[in-house]
């Protein structure tokens, strides 16, 4: 109890963490509330084409006269959901396989390692394309799961390596001599020791999922019904928004993705300080 309270106390005292968290929170809130203020269907042609921001259309309109704000609001929500889901699935599988493989060792490790390596060398994007092409109705859920299922191997490998080195530490020996079960040791000794590392894995998975989703969206294999920031950006690039000086079409989705991933990175650095009491005092 006390330990968690203290951790939270230090977390809130940490400037980097506060900055990162504020930015992230801003986008999460935006994803929740912004669509409520969107007056138009993101796909509908509602206004004059290629119009800069105005009181009528806050973020301007696209080449086709769609409302950019409505697209952004819905896109942000979906992007965060796909990133969160895909990133979580990838992180979870990676952590699970990495921890088990690294701590148990032996035959189980060899088998898991083999599976990891196989998935690792599969051409991820190609597989995603094939799978996506087979499904005629594609929801963001399916997309997230596929992204998560193909993104975990590097995470598993990195976590396995960390686990291997932590397993040999004397405090793990001490926990074993305290009669702790392997499961408990992994959960209470090894996992907490690489908490900031796990968070970094999650950030990279999160960012990766967002980018993977954008790529799929770009080649027309994204969700059939919905809208995402990736789709927006790629539409903008496709219709030469940059060359035509339509900054209002390109910047919101680009800035949002950059800000979200950037905030997560800053949080990671901050968390490292929070989790390591030695860094706290300086």
């Amino acid at each position: 109890m006390g330990a968690w309270y203290e951790l939270i106390y230090f977390a809130f005292r940490n400037v980097k963490l506060r900055i990162g968290l504020t930015i992230l929170l801003f986008f999460v809130l935006a994803a929740i509330f912004a669509p409520l203020f969107a007056r138009y269907d993101p796909n509908a042609y509602v206004g004059p084409a290629a119009h800069p921001p105005s009181p009528e259309h806050w973020f301007g309109t696209t080449t086709f006269g769609q409302d950019v704000y409505s697209q952004f609001a819905h896109g942000l929500r979906l992007t965060l959901i796909v990133g969160l889901l895909g990133g979580s699935i990838g992180t979870l599988i990676g952590i699970l396989i990495g921890l088990i493989s690294g701590y148990r060792g032996g035959l189980l490790d060899e088998i898991l390692n083999m599976i990891t390596n196989i998935v690792l060398i599969l051409p991820t994007l190609a597989i995603l394309i094939i799978i996506a092409a087979y499904l005629t109705v594609r929801g963001f859920l399916v997309q997230s799961v596929f992204i998560g299922l193909t993104a975990w191997p590097w995470a598993a490998r990195a976590i396995r390596a960390q686990t291997l080195s932590l397993r040999a530490r004397e405090f793990v020996d001490l926990a074993r001599m305290s009669g702790r079960s392997s499961m408990k040791i992994v959960l209470t000794e090894i996992a907490p020791s690489m908490m900031s590392y796990l968070f970094m894995v999650f950030i990279l998975q999160f960012g990766g999922a967002i980018l993977n989703a954008a790529t799929l969206d770009f080649i027309g294999l994204g969700p059939t019904q919905a809208f995402s920031l990736g789709l927006m950006m790629n539409n903008a690039v496709l219709w030469a928004a940059l060359e035509l000086g339509m900054w209002w079409w390109l910047i919101p989705p680009g800035a949002a993705i950059t800000a979200i991933v950037g905030a997560l990175y800053v949080m990671n650095v901050g968390l490292d300080e929070v989790f390591n009491p030695k860094l706290r005092e300086l």
């Binding site: 004397e170 405090f171 000794e189 020791s193 908490m195 989790f275 009491p277 030695k278």
Partner: peptide
């Protein structure tokens, strides 16, 4: 063990 610091989880 030998190294007292290594026997504790520093976090």
């Amino acid at each position: 063990f030998q190294d007292p610091f290594a026997s504790y989880n520093p976090i």
